[in-house]
Amino acid sequence: MTRSVWLKADDEVGDWEARKRRITAGLEAGVDWVLVDRSDVERVRELGEVDVAAFGGGDVHVMEAEEEGPSPDATVVGKDGEGDGTVDLPSDFSGSADLSALRADGAQGGYVRIFDESYEAFAEAVAEEAEYTLVVGEDWQIIPLENLIARIGEETTLVAGVRTAEEAATAYETLEIGADAVLLDTDDPGEIRRTVEARDAVERETLDLEYAEVTEIEQTGSADRVCIDTANMMDHDEGMLVGSMSRGLFFVHAETAESPYVASRPFRVNAGAVHAYLRVPGGETTYLSEVGSGTEVQIVDTDGNTREAVVGRAKIEKRPMFRVQAETEDGDRIETLLQNAETIKVHTREGRTAVTDLEPGDELLVYYEDTARHFGEAVEESIIEK
């Protein structure tokens, strides 16, 4: 499931200048959708690249008449209708103007404010017809959301109304399934940014790292070494996973540490030789030789938490190398080539350690999975790597 953030920016927010400030903050933070009134679609298009949803009336013919100028990516019914309580909710939902608009393909989304159980039931009816179902709780939020997640299934994209990043994180995790998206209603740029971060966090992998015992370390000749400079800063406990064998990847620290000879480069990982595998987002690997400007790579910390980074530059230079071999808890032997230099740090049980200080018996942090790879994808087949 891919999560998303919708930003509410209709006339309830204020005048255009207030709405513009909110939308601009959303664009800068990286929201996926902006929800506005139909009259603001062109203005939003001028501000930046983002998917635009627009409120439309419950009458299909009214919406057709409004479709002059740029069209939204999705039209949403429910505002000034049954969905928000402006029009009384009919006892027989089949006669709802909002549902009629959805059934006639006049709109893709339905907006429902949950005042009580009858509106919760109406949201279920909307979900049967709508590509996007936007639900906003009033006095209570979690229970209706739990009910809707349990009952709706995958026939619609469920968008839960929230006001904070904390509420967004809860919505994404409810019933261990979570809402597909959140509809954020706030003017606070920091809260918008934190909500986008909450979206990103729920999408990320957490890896089970383990320690492998160093069995051999030897100097080799020179090889073509890849140094990855990302467009993102890394923390002291972060790095990347690289290795000569795809099933066993070694944790290599970013160059965040100061030394008497070289300034820190917290955007850099000196990753290894061109043949080595590098773990990237999505559980795949790529060869270090294929990494270049614009490549998305995976940053990992020593607890196995991951995030994404964009490569700004990859430098390939001939350097003297070490061959490091280690044995996993399962008795499998894995290895990699790393540059022979004090600035290249791996992670042992004692903490950050220069590769030049490694000795047999030291235990290195690695990611191990007994799975073969074909073009970077995990496959079930027998492959021998030496």
Rank of each mutant, 00 (worst) to 15 (best):
A171N: 06
E166H: 06
I192T: 12
E167N: 04
T186M: 08
I192W: 09
L175A: 13
R163S: 06
G178K: 02
I177P: 02
E166R: 11
V162I: 14
D187N: 12
P189S: 03
E205N: 13
D187G: 05
R194N: 11
P189E: 01
G161R: 06
L175Q: 07
I177E: 14
V196Q: 04
D185E: 12
E167F: 11
T195Q: 04
T164I: 14
A198W: 13
E176A: 13
A160C: 12
T174E: 08
A179Q: 05
D180T: 04
G161S: 05
R193V: 08
G161A: 03
A160P: 07
D180L: 00
V162G: 00
D188E: 12
E166N: 06
T186F: 08
T206C: 06
E191I: 09
R163I: 02
G178E: 06
E176N: 14
T195E: 02
E173H: 06
L175H: 02
T164C: 06
Y172N: 00
Y172W: 06
E205A: 15
E197G: 00
G190H: 03
A168C: 04
E167S: 03
R193S: 14
P189G: 07
Y172H: 01
L207S: 14
T164L: 10
L184F: 08
D200V: 15
I177R: 11
G161N: 04
